[in-house]
């Protein structure tokens, strides 16, 4: 069975600057995949290339075994996207927007209508159905964008910072929904700066830094890899065996070099 998402030497340059540099990824079907990296590392550029929003300079992308660039229509039928900026039409109401998106994905009217109402109910937006999206708060817009991304029942879901600006209650609802999708066999590719969420949800993680994949694997594999790089003081001190439970934040800082960076508060002495 081919991977749900596969890239080969995927590269993107902007006027001489290489934002994404020959990355090879393989995300198996059914994985909840976290894609991490510091600001400007190339996360959004990658996700844009994976969803057809941005042309790569070179390389290939396959979704569910089909080439994104040769079979874009077929690939896009199976993917859902919450992109950066959310892709909302702010002059529509939520229901109108979901109807529009459903039809764009080729759903028939009855199915679109039923799913739109169901999604609005699920997201707690059904009482706001007459309000224009322009008048929505950021969190409400985020929930609507997610609803639009799943209305056609995608097999692969791409989420760019889906929990940004979403309150704790709504975040819980969304997580439950996403985990439900995983349980039913969907694949989710998620970027987030909230590492606790990624750690709780994702089974596999890739870390991108300066446009290159610097770590890729299951959380356990990443932990083992980082442990191998750490000094052996943990072994000498059994009480420090907590290294065996390195948090994703610790792994992330170790991999991208955050631990070795100077602590800013020590440098900016003029800060009171």
């Amino acid at each position: 069975m081919p991977p749900a998402i596969a890239t080969h030497a995927l590269t993107r340059s902007f006027d001489g600057f290489t934002a994404v540099d020959h990355i090879d990824l393989a995300v198996e079907a059914g994985q909840f995949f976290g894609f991490l990296g510091p600001n400007g590392a190339g996360k959004s550029t990658t996700i844009k290339m994976l969803t057809g929003l941005l042309a790569p300079s070179s390389g290939a992308v396959q979704i569910l075994g089909q080439d994104l660039f040769y079979n874009p229509i077929e690939v896009k039928r199976h993917i859902g996207v919450v992109p950066e900026g959310m892709a909302l039409f702010t002059r529509l109401t939520a229901l109108e927007y979901l109807r529009f998106v459903g039809r764009m994905y080729g759903l028939d009217k009855a199915t679109t209508e039923q799913r739109a109402e169901e999604l609005l109910e699920f997201m707690g937006l059904s009482d706001q159905s007459r309000k224009l999206i322009a008048d929505y708060s950021h969190g409400m817009s985020k929930k609507l964008a997610l609803a639009a991304a799943v209305i056609h029942g995608p097999k692969v879901l791409f989420l760019d910072e889906p929990f940004e600006g979403v309150d704790a209650i709504a975040a819980g609802t969304l997580k439950a929904m996403l985990q439900g999708m995983i349980a039913r066999g969907a694949t989710i590719f998620l970027t987030s700066h909230v590492l606790e969420i990624v750690e709780r949800l994702c089974s596999h993680v890739a870390i991108i830094n300066h446009g290159q994949i610097v770590a890729h694997g299951s959380l356990e594999e990443l932990r083992a890899g980082v442990q191998a790089r750490l000094p052996l003081h943990g072994a000498a001190d059994p009480e420090n065996s907590a290294e065996a439970n390195l948090t994703l934040e610790q792994i992330f800082l170790n991999v991208v070099g955050g631990a070795s960076a100077a602590r800013p508060e020590q440098e900016l002495t003029w800060l009171s």
Binding site: H78, E121, I169
Partner: peptide, 28 residues
């Protein structure tokens, strides 16, 4: 707010159709 209509999001549930068999895939 319409308190009569309001219903906490967390109490909402997906019906069976939430499984949403990949209709587009079938079409594809």
């Amino acid at each position: 707010t319409n308190s009569a209509k309001l219903r906490p999001a967390s109490t909402a549930v997906f019906t069976q159709s939430a499984l949403w068999p990949a209709e587009p895939a079938a079409r594809a």
